[in-house]
Design a protein around this nucleic acid. Sequence first.
DNA 1: TAACTATAGTTGTCTATACCAGATAAACCG
DNA 2: CGGTTTATCTGGTATAGACAACTATAGTTA
Lengths: 242, 242
Amino acid sequence: MGMIDKQSPVPIYHQLEEKIKKRIETGELMPGDALPSEREYAEQFEISRMTVRQAITNLVNERFLHRVKGKGTFVMEKKMEQPLHGLTSFTEDMKARGLQPSSSLIHFEIIPASSDLADKLGINEHGPVYEIKRIRLAEGIPMALERTYISANLVQGLTEDIVKDSLYAYVENVLNLKIESGIQVIEASTSNAEERKYLEIAEADPILLMERTSSLEDGTRFEVVKSSYRADRYKFMIDLKR
Amino acid sequence: MGMIDKQSPVPIYHQLEEKIKKRIETGELMPGDALPSEREYAEQFEISRMTVRQAITNLVNERFLHRVKGKGTFVMEKKMEQPLHGLTSFTEDMKARGLQPSSSLIHFEIIPASSDLADKLGINEHGPVYEIKRIRLAEGIPMALERTYISANLVQGLTEDIVKDSLYAYVENVLNLKIESGIQVIEASTSNAEERKYLEIAEADPILLMERTSSLEDGTRFEVVKSSYRADRYKFMIDLKR
DNA sequence: TAACTATAGTTGTCTATACCAGATAAACCG
DNA sequence: CGGTTTATCTGGTATAGACAACTATAGTTA
């Protein structure tokens, strides 16, 4: 049995989390099985029970385990294949589906924010906003028409070249901003002329509309993305908690 | 300043959570503001810093606060209006939107599970499954056609009367099962004849399809719900974390 | 036999303390 | 004046121990 390295810079509770996760992944711990009790773990690894609790609490939050007071801690029934298409970019999303993503920029300018947009971005009406329109493709086939709106005051010096390269790499690595959460609205609709043109669909074909507002670590609104997906080529998967 | 009741059966950390939430809701603590430090809270309420941390950790997980090492704990920028249409029944969902929900049962029988359904429910192929079809209405207007599939071995003795009353009240209060999580797939489509009939729509109108697989506390798959929503009357809102 | 009662196991809550690491500003020194 | 050190904030990790609340079982009693 591998041990815990108390001198390691990686926290003990994190080491224990990984150890338990591994025992689940390898099948050593099966769904429904009871874990050793918190006190047993504490004794076995010569660590405090509170540290064990910290590890287990994290795994409970991630839905690997669940606790029952008075009885014990148990391995969750097998997870269904990961949705995990939570807060990911189109690029990551397609890669996760095993498809080769690409995109083509069709529009880039600074516009004054409409009242709706200003509200969603938490800025003043008519404030400067980048409007970026792109076609998103997978394996060279058009999947979605995407319109991105970002406050020009929050992200200064954005250029077409940066957008063509990788907007999110720039935001994360150069500006050092991390996108942390967001809300998403999904609806079905009929297509408009622009969508039909770029997505190469017929008038009767339905469209899956997605609007996402993403926020940074401190809750500052970062971007609003409106995407029109070809309904025959795209589904959203979301996992619901609690 | 209200105090903490150490004798109360409600845990101290939970009392503190509520206290902090209230200070945010009333505007006493504004977005971006720093909270008193953990040590200050501990001293003020004469409780342990670890207990304060437990309260704050929960609020961080709920996205009310965020921590920055070495600097402090801060109030998140204002949340957008709650989506919170996460894991709710149609009934709860409509009530949250201020609409009066109702439903009409159009089909109830036990069928053998298809291979797809058996896989999603984690049961054997051809195993017995309740098939329940209902029309969901808001303010008397048809919103969705809903097909629910539940393993008949897991939930025994289900009758039409129970379904007409409240399926979920029965499951929760009588069978004592709690639905804890789920995954949801959303897509857009054109309508079929059954949907057009019950939803009173035209052939060209798009449909928002939702399929949800819900699980119990221990991860056991409980039900698969396939819903067809009128696209002009319904949107999904989802909040994304991390 | 049936109902109750210890008892020992589990997780849940809470304490008091300690040290580490990142951030900040005051104090210091060249 | 400008750069560096130091002290002191902050949250992050970890400990050892205590008691409460809940569950299950074994044993006892009516």
